[in-house]
Amino acid sequence: MTMRKTDKDDAMIDALLQDVAKISREPDAGLMARVSADAARAPSIPVPPPARGIFAQLGEVIGGWPAMGGLAIAGVAGLWVGVAPPASVEDVAATFFGTTETVTLWDGIDILAEDGLIDG
């Protein structure tokens, strides 16, 4: 009995799907007008660009990787001059400002002088 019922239900599903598949529907003028209005409006909606990180945006402003590389080299050179200023730099500074003052960050440890990296 159960088998007969299942067979009939399966047959009904086949028939139901076939009948519903025949159902169609044409869009009325109102729907077509709404879709056309959407189409007229849609191109003005900008597609958001992919999210970009703050460093990528900063690099773009500066001028890309070549400029960033030059900036990095200049930064390292400046740091080096600050840590171990050549005598000529101190002379120029004294000429402009009258006097200079040296600050030692490593009190009692002159690691650079040991290698002879500081003039004088």
């Binding site: 598949a21 159902i23 529907r25 044409e26 729907l31 077509m32 056309s36 189409a39 007229a40 191109p43």
Partner: peptide
């Protein structure tokens, strides 16, 4: 063509595609 600014292309596309989309959703 629609992306390049031809609005009539969208109307033609809608004429082709909307009936099928509506029928699919209705079923």
């Amino acid at each position: 063509a629609y992306a390049n600014g031809t609005g009539a292309a969208a109307e033609e596309l809608a004429r082709r595609l909307l009936p099928g989309a509506l029928a699919q959703a209705t079923r």
